[in-house]
Design a protein around this nucleic acid. Sequence first.
DNA 1: TTGTACGCGTTATCAA
DNA 2: TTGATAACGCGTACAA
Lengths: 333, 333
Amino acid sequence: MARVTISDVADAAGVSIKTVSRVLNRERYVGAATQARVEAAVARLRFRPSFAARALAGGRSHQIALVCDNPSPYYIHQMQLGVRDRCAAAGVRMIAQPYDRAGAHILDEVEELIGTTHVDGLVLTPPIADDVAVLAWLEGRQVPFVRVSPGVDPARAPSVFIDNARAAAGVVRHLIGLGHRRIGFVGGDPAFAASARRSAGYLAALDEAKIAPEATLIHTGDFSLAAGAAAAEALLALPAPPTAIVAANDEMAAGVLTVAHRRGVTVPARLSVAGFGDDAVAAMVWPPLTTTRQPTRDLGYRAADLLLAPGADAHRELASPLVVRGSTGPAPS
Amino acid sequence: MARVTISDVADAAGVSIKTVSRVLNRERYVGAATQARVEAAVARLRFRPSFAARALAGGRSHQIALVCDNPSPYYIHQMQLGVRDRCAAAGVRMIAQPYDRAGAHILDEVEELIGTTHVDGLVLTPPIADDVAVLAWLEGRQVPFVRVSPGVDPARAPSVFIDNARAAAGVVRHLIGLGHRRIGFVGGDPAFAASARRSAGYLAALDEAKIAPEATLIHTGDFSLAAGAAAAEALLALPAPPTAIVAANDEMAAGVLTVAHRRGVTVPARLSVAGFGDDAVAAMVWPPLTTTRQPTRDLGYRAADLLLAPGADAHRELASPLVVRGSTGPAPS
DNA sequence: TTGTACGCGTTATCAA
DNA sequence: TTGATAACGCGTACAA
């Protein structure tokens, strides 16, 4: 019942506690035989070092925090699993800290998180990754952190990201290649830098094909399913409705599909819908696309890697997950 | 940039560190004036007590963990937010610990979690809430924990839950009241106790109405959207397809809807679909139901309350979220 | 009502 | 290559 401490292990192995500590921290200068004895004792006693004590004495807590506040539960979940996997492999604990933007005062939350838990580092996802007050405070405290998909001041700290404009342009280009000319767009929450980039990509692809953008075909959402549905209602009620709709994330694409189905618009015979982003909702479209890419989890992997093994290239652009999702078909003639 | 400690606060307030500690822990016997001075100093210095030190010295870490491994990101997200809210109000930090069942050895994970982090308690969600090895180990270590929706041995520890059988029966009864006689059912993952209860409710309601259950109308899924879609494929291809389908959770209901739409089956004119569970995917059905209930977050609230303020009724049955979701309409004649 | 001395379990420093 | 000892920041027991 009582906690097993380092001294217990030391006694069991017949060495001093400092030696046990050396083995635990993989320091140099430990005799092979000694090391084996210690490791055996650790395993036999099921010894687990106390993070509290390690943090107090050593200044390292062996924990990092994943701070996220995102509209998509799928995104959060994949990110959590991705970061967690890499942390586990590195012997570090990830503590997930979900927030809701409504709760305001994110800086206070971060200050308290750092002050109380002593985490060794942070992974920040949008929109917190772009909160300059948070960034400044962390820099001041010299707390290591990695930004996921940074928008403002992207070179400011280590980060992982994809080229959102290029990826969005690719999706639109694909639709244009299928013969679509009237392509609707449902943009994301402006609070997320990715939204603007995806819009830019949409416009760039249209421009490339000499298609003039039309204001009535462009809507702004907030990444929620309901927003996708609302945009689709408006788009499909147009006198000249689009033959294809691109949504800035998969959840909004699902919302578009829902409305299309309800209104009896066949997809893709009369409409093509392309989502963008996580694999999450991909299964909702038809046929369900089984992609090998897991963009969000991948971002989590890389973010954790960057935090745990710094020194490598600090700004990683991941290959864009340029998967065209949804029931994309040729434009009706 | 050095850490602000209790002694700094003590100096600033002109008292001893013990007095500061008293104020922090809201102990009795502190002069009003003293308390005010200390609190002022705490605020001015932005002092944050170190969890590590508190855990070491006092045995309390002021942290609890939410351990979940669930197929639905929506569920996890709502649960995390619910538990987090209550913890924040109580001055306790929630550290979310998502797992994937594939990773096996959940007992090891829990042992390590407790051993290293010293969390003061655990919230366990299904299926971990029913892992008897984990339960036994926690009891042995006297670690407080709360089970969410326990299946096996439900009285074994404090828990929060709803009456799944009753709720499922209510949904089915509602459909029967609309004239439906052939009602399909897509069950959940057998690893989750709730699945069996929901099936039982379905059967009970049929029995009540003297409707004989048909094997071809009953499918088993795993709570995923794809499983709902697969079941719908089979059900709608039947010579005598059901006029209504009940899914054991909302994600599978969404899968059913997707397939129905794809096959040109109008909902609800020719088919009614009822999901069950989280609000999450409710918006996907039509018309979007705005319910005031948030069943999963509610479970999180209560679970946290139970853990943080024990002594109250240790086994809380929440009112069943008996909301019939989806496009339920009368049976076609 | 307030303060003093000790210990929690680990790492860091320095000596052996 | 190892071991003794002093921190780390806070709570607890006791004394004042």
